[in-house]
Simulated assay, not measured.
Amino acid sequence: MEKMMESLKEFVWDIIGYLIPGAFLLIVFNFCLDKREFEYDDFLIDWEVFGTSLVVIVSYVLGYLVYSFTKYKIYLQDRLIKFIIYLNYSRDNFITRFFKKRHSEEWKEQFKNSKLYEAAIAKLKVEYPTIDTMEINEVRNILMSKNPTQSETIYTFMFRSSIFDHVSTIFMLVLFIYLIQLFTSIELLKDDIQYKYIYLSMLISVPLLGNSKRFFFPKAMRIPFSNL
């Protein structure tokens, strides 16, 4: 019964984790798209004709699209950071330190060198002789299986981290379309003065959302190691 409840909990987290970003994408584009460029009143769906169930399904599917964009965003971001560090000749200065902190894998290097991680590996080595070769995610899964009571806190932090990341992706997608619109004849987004302030707010929010993601994600990964 306990395993079934745990599986149900993971299923619910999975549904919500895709549903919220997809719904937010739908809301943002429904708000920002210039309806004068389209023959229908609402983006993708007519909210009055179709029921709530269709909105939920569309949001869930769009959530997977947002997730794919987020993964690709992280990939491009890491490649750009590596290139900037390379141009800086990997010197240990402000530029290198600033960009290294924003690499998605940087926290792993720092955590692997921490006393907490070393203590966890030393304690588990008797039971798992090859644990030195395992990734942090694999070690974390072992620790979570030994202490399942902490899973709710971990899922909460992971969920917050992913939401910050997905919202950032959606804002960047809107800003990318608006940038194209500035230099072409395409007019997909509303261009009134109040919307320009909204786009500026999105631009300012992107690095702030990134900082919040970098706060919650490593914390979620470290929790199992802190409860040995």
Rank of each mutant, 00 (worst) to 15 (best):
E2M: 12
E2W: 14
E6T: 15
W13G: 05
D14I: 07
D14N: 08
I15Y: 04
P21N: 08
A23I: 01
L25T: 10
I27G: 04
F29Q: 02
F29I: 01
N30V: 00
L33N: 14
R36V: 02
E39C: 06
F50V: 11
F50S: 06
L65E: 00
S68T: 10
K73I: 12
K73F: 10
I74A: 12
Y75K: 09
Q77G: 03
I81M: 02
K82Y: 06
I85N: 08
Y86L: 14
N93E: 02
F98H: 10
F98V: 04
R102Y: 00
H103T: 06
H103M: 09
E105D: 06
W107F: 08
N113D: 07
K115M: 09
K115C: 08
L116C: 03
E118K: 08
M134H: 05
M134K: 06
I136Y: 02
N137W: 10
N137V: 12
R140S: 05
L143F: 01
L143N: 01
K146A: 13
E152H: 15
T156E: 11
R160K: 15
S162Y: 13
D165I: 12
T169A: 05
I170M: 03
I170C: 05
M172N: 05
L173P: 11
L175G: 04
F176C: 08
K190F: 01
D191M: 11
D192T: 12
K196E: 14
Y197D: 12
Y197K: 12
Y197E: 12
P218V: 02
P218G: 03
M221A: 14
F225Q: 10
S226P: 00
